[in-house]
Amino acid sequence: MIIQEKAKILANLKIIDKYYKVVLFSSQIAKGIQPGQFVMIRVTETTEPLLRRPFSIHRVKRKKIEILYEVVGRGTKILSEKRPGEYLDILGPLGNGFDINLKSGEQKPKILLVAGGIGVAPLLFLAEQLIIHTLRPSAILLGAKTKRQILCEKEFKELGLDVKISTDDGSKGFKGKVTDLLRDFLSTANTQQRVTIYTCGPRKMFREISLISKEHKASIFGSLGEYLGCGVGACLGCVVKTKRGFKRVCKEGPVFDIDEIV
């Protein structure tokens, strides 16, 4: 059930540089939302910018929805200037979310979470839910440009997870991209055990992850960050080419088995 709701802003804080976190009070949407699903936010009542903006859910605490976002353009700039007490018109829950249910008889895989930059946003909520489903991830690999931009290290550690870090400049952890860190990590891993990787980010990163994990019979589920129109599956603006034809990112996605994406 998709709901349109006026959600009160409880907090809207700058984390570091261009990264912010907004906390919304949502009496309805928070209830049924799953990791990997998203909301469409109307950041202005004017026509500039015109379209809603999609945001994945960072964390849900009862009726509070947390959204971690990066200021990348006009929409997120306006969002970052909103004050507590103001209301946002939000639409959700949207999309399929991460499928975290094992098929019957299926053995528990080794689970890795991989995120570069703002791609970490939906993975905290996912990690919490995986733990509840007794599918504790083996590690979370976090990539950032530099030490100060590493997001959510503390939150993942509080969940008791093994946090591996890469920075482009080597100011903390592994020097290089998070995909290089993944390669390094997998090179020491047992190739016999089934690996499931959950990730979020641009398609280019998915392709790299897919190549890197080829020898590991890995299943890789990625949440695509795409340009969306309606968010409800009507306009067909967001489609992505898969092995079974065009699929809507907002409806059949945003989470795809990335080997399906052409």
Partner: peptide, 23 residues
Amino acid sequence: KEGNPQPRIFETASGLLNSIGLE
């Protein structure tokens, strides 16, 4: 009809440009 490849939509000043291609 399969429709057009991406890019299919793009936001402009108070407007929307689309090229869905009748999928």
